[in-house]
Measured scan of single mutants.
Amino acid sequence: GSKLPPGWEKRMSRSSGRVYYFNHITNASQWERPSG
Protein backbone atom coordinates (compact mmCIF):
# COMPACT_ATOMS: atom_id res chain seq x y z
CA GLY A 1 0.00 0.00 0.00
CA SER A 2 1.43 3.32 -1.06
CA LYS A 3 0.66 6.56 0.72
CA LEU A 4 -1.36 9.34 -0.85
CA PRO A 5 0.29 12.63 -1.87
CA PRO A 6 0.41 15.37 0.79
CA GLY A 7 -2.99 16.78 1.70
CA TRP A 8 -5.02 13.91 0.26
CA GLU A 9 -7.27 11.64 2.26
CA LYS A 10 -9.81 8.97 1.50
CA ARG A 11 -13.45 9.94 2.05
CA MET A 12 -16.79 8.21 1.70
CA SER A 13 -19.61 9.91 -0.17
CA ARG A 14 -22.72 9.93 1.99
CA SER A 15 -25.09 10.13 -0.95
CA SER A 16 -23.67 7.32 -3.07
CA GLY A 17 -21.55 5.36 -0.60
CA ARG A 18 -18.63 5.55 -3.00
CA VAL A 19 -15.09 6.30 -1.92
CA TYR A 20 -13.48 9.47 -3.21
CA TYR A 21 -10.33 11.42 -2.44
CA PHE A 22 -10.26 14.86 -0.83
CA ASN A 23 -7.36 17.31 -0.57
CA HIS A 24 -7.76 19.46 2.51
CA ILE A 25 -5.01 21.83 1.34
CA THR A 26 -6.54 22.75 -2.02
CA ASN A 27 -10.15 21.67 -1.30
CA ALA A 28 -9.98 19.50 -4.40
CA SER A 29 -11.89 16.23 -4.62
CA GLN A 30 -11.83 13.47 -7.21
CA TRP A 31 -12.93 9.89 -7.73
CA GLU A 32 -9.58 8.74 -9.10
CA ARG A 33 -6.77 7.97 -6.68
CA PRO A 34 -4.31 10.87 -6.86
CA SER A 35 -0.78 10.06 -7.95
CA GLY A 36 2.32 11.94 -6.93
Rank of each mutant, 00 (worst) to 15 (best):
F22N: 01
S2D: 15
E9W: 05
W31K: 06
S13A: 10
F22V: 05
M12C: 15
K10I: 15
M12F: 15
M12L: 14
I25F: 12
N23A: 02
A28M: 15
M12I: 15
W8M: 00
G36H: 12
S16Y: 09
T26I: 04
W8R: 00
Y20M: 01
T26N: 05
G1F: 07
Q30S: 07
F22L: 03
N27S: 08
P6L: 10
P6N: 08
H24E: 06
G17N: 10
I25D: 08
Y20G: 00
I25Y: 11
F22H: 07
P5L: 05
H24F: 14
G36C: 14
Y20A: 00
V19I: 14
G7K: 02
R11M: 07
M12N: 07
Q30N: 03
R18V: 05
T26R: 03
P5A: 05
A28L: 13
T26W: 05
S2T: 13
M12W: 15
K10H: 05
S2L: 11
R18H: 06
S16E: 08
A28H: 14
R14T: 12
K3H: 12
V19A: 08
W31Y: 10
G7A: 04
R11S: 02
N23F: 04
G7C: 11
A28P: 01
V19P: 08
G1Y: 06
P6Q: 09
L4R: 02
R33Y: 13
S13W: 08
L4Y: 04
Y21V: 00
N27F: 10
T26Q: 05
G17H: 08
G7R: 02
S13V: 11
F22K: 03
P6S: 08
S2P: 12
S2N: 13
I25L: 10
K10V: 14
W31E: 05
S16R: 08
G17W: 02
N23I: 03
V19W: 13
W31Q: 04
L4A: 02
A28W: 10
S35V: 13
G17Y: 04
S15F: 11
R11A: 03
S35W: 10
E32K: 08
K10L: 14
N23Q: 02
S29M: 15
P34K: 01
S29I: 15
S15G: 10
P34E: 02
G1I: 11
K10S: 08
S29G: 05
R33L: 11
H24N: 12
R11I: 06
R33S: 07
K3N: 13
G1T: 11
R11F: 06
S13R: 06
K10Y: 07
Y20T: 00
H24I: 15
R11N: 02
L4S: 03
G36T: 12
N27Y: 09
W8L: 01
E9L: 08
Y20D: 00
S16T: 14
K10G: 05
K3F: 12
P34C: 04
R18P: 01
N27G: 15
P34I: 01
Q30I: 04
P6E: 10
G7D: 04
W31V: 06
K10E: 14
H24L: 13
Y21K: 00
E32N: 08
M12T: 13
E32W: 11
R11L: 07
N23M: 02
S15E: 11
G36Q: 11
S35A: 11
R14V: 12
S13L: 13
R11V: 06
S15N: 12
E9A: 06
E32Y: 08
E9C: 12
V19E: 08
K10P: 08
R11C: 15
N23C: 09
G7H: 10
E9T: 10
G7L: 02
Y21F: 06
W31N: 05
G7S: 03
V19L: 06
R18G: 04
M12D: 04
S35K: 10
S13E: 13
V19M: 08
P5T: 03
S29N: 05
P34H: 01
K3T: 14
G36I: 13
S2G: 13
A28F: 08
G36D: 14
R18N: 05
F22P: 00
G7V: 03
P34S: 02
S13F: 09
K3G: 14
S15P: 10
V19T: 09
Y21W: 07
K10N: 02
R18M: 06
G1R: 09
E9V: 14
K10W: 07
Y20V: 01
M12R: 14
N27T: 06
E32G: 08
E32I: 07
T26E: 04
E32M: 08
G17F: 04
R11Q: 03
N23V: 01
H24P: 09
P5K: 02
P34T: 01
E9P: 01
Y20S: 00
L4G: 03
S35Y: 11
P5G: 05
P6W: 11
W31T: 06
V19F: 11
S29E: 06
E9Y: 06
S16F: 08
N27D: 04
S16D: 10
M12P: 04
G1L: 09
H24Y: 15
